[in-house]
């Protein structure tokens, strides 16, 4: 059996080893984020006395707000991938001793979590569609959105891998991962849709990687993206992924030179 597949299955088992916590955490985080967004936008719509804001109806904003935590969990691993920890405690050595492609193994584990979260997303969307109607989500938009999520997951992996590999030199990189998450949350349209940003900010954000992690996949799911924009978005996602994969490879080579293998 392919090594990556074995690690993928192990990742699924690890994620499900504490099932009650897994589902409680899922319901708690998605439910609370949606609840805060619901009341925030309700207050804004009431104060403004309007039916639409920046092209969003209240129902549309609610669907967007529901998709944010779901897509975020699929593309940005909630915890660090363990690369930094393995550098600090010497666990990296086992990957160096055996004929394993390190990033392949790590990506397989990360993909395992992402797959589970995508499954949760599909369940929630199905429930939403059953209760409130499709709200612009069609089989085509679903296909475009899930493809964008898969590509975004790859980008999210390389982005985080770069930060974690700074552990070869830095004492602790946890704070960098948190900063990355916070930046993705605001600049990727997690906190509020990017349509609410000034035009100059939207133009600038279009060229940053964060928009590909959240806003772009969500807009694809909502059917707000045409074919040409979808293709351009995927190309940009791949381009950023390749940039970060390149820097990760560089950091890996340089980092191994200073790696002391503590804990062997």
């Amino acid at each position: 059996m392919n090594i990556a597949w074995i690690f993928y299955l192990q990742g699924v088992k690890a994620a499900l080893s504490y099932r009650a916590e897994f589902w409680i955490n899922f319901a708690g985080s998605v439910g609370s984020q949606f609840c805060v967004a619901f009341f925030l936008w309700k207050a804004v719509f009431l104060a403004r006395g309007t039916d639409t804001l920046q092209g969003f109806t209240f129902a549309g904003l609610m669907l967007y707000s529901l998709l944010v935590p779901l897509v975020e969990r699929s593309v940005m691993a909630p915890d660090m991938m363990g690369i930094a920890g393995e550098i600090y405690d010497g666990g990296l050595s086992r990957y160096l001793l055996y004929p394993l492609a390190y990033f392949q193994v790590k990506y397989a584990s990360s993909l395992a979590q992402s797959t589970l979260y995508q499954g949760q997303t599909a369940v929630i969307l199905a429930v939403y569609a059953a209760v409130f109607g499709s709200s612009g989500i069609t089989p085509v938009s679903l296909m475009m959105g899930l493809t964008a999520i898969a590509f975004a997951g790859w980008l999210g992996f390389w982005l985080l891998a770069n930060l974690e590999m700074l552990a070869f030199w830095a004492d602790n990189v946890w704070s960098l991962a948190v900063m990355n998450r916070m930046a993705g949350w605001l600049l990727g349209g997690g906190m509020i849709p990017l349509a609410f940003f000034p035009a100059w900010a939207r133009s600038a954000l279009e060229w940053l990687p964060y928009i590909r992690l959240l806003s772009f996949p969500i807009r694809c799911l909502l059917g707000q993206v045409g074919w040409s924009e979808w293709l351009f978005g995927l190309v940009m996602t791949v381009a950023w992924s390749l940039v970060f994969a390149g820097t990760a490879s560089l950091l890996w080579r340089k980092g191994l030179r200073v790696y002391a293998g503590v804990g062997i």
Binding site: M179, M182, I192, F196
Partner: peptide, 25 residues
């Protein structure tokens, strides 16, 4: 890093409220 992380958090909160108040009084 940790000091900078919290400063990013503060910046995001200020940015969020500025963006919200572009939509409502």
């Amino acid at each position: 890093f940790r000091i900078f992380m919290d400063l990013v958090y503060y910046g995001i909160q200020i940015g969020f409220y500025q963006a919200i108040f572009m939509q409502t009084p």
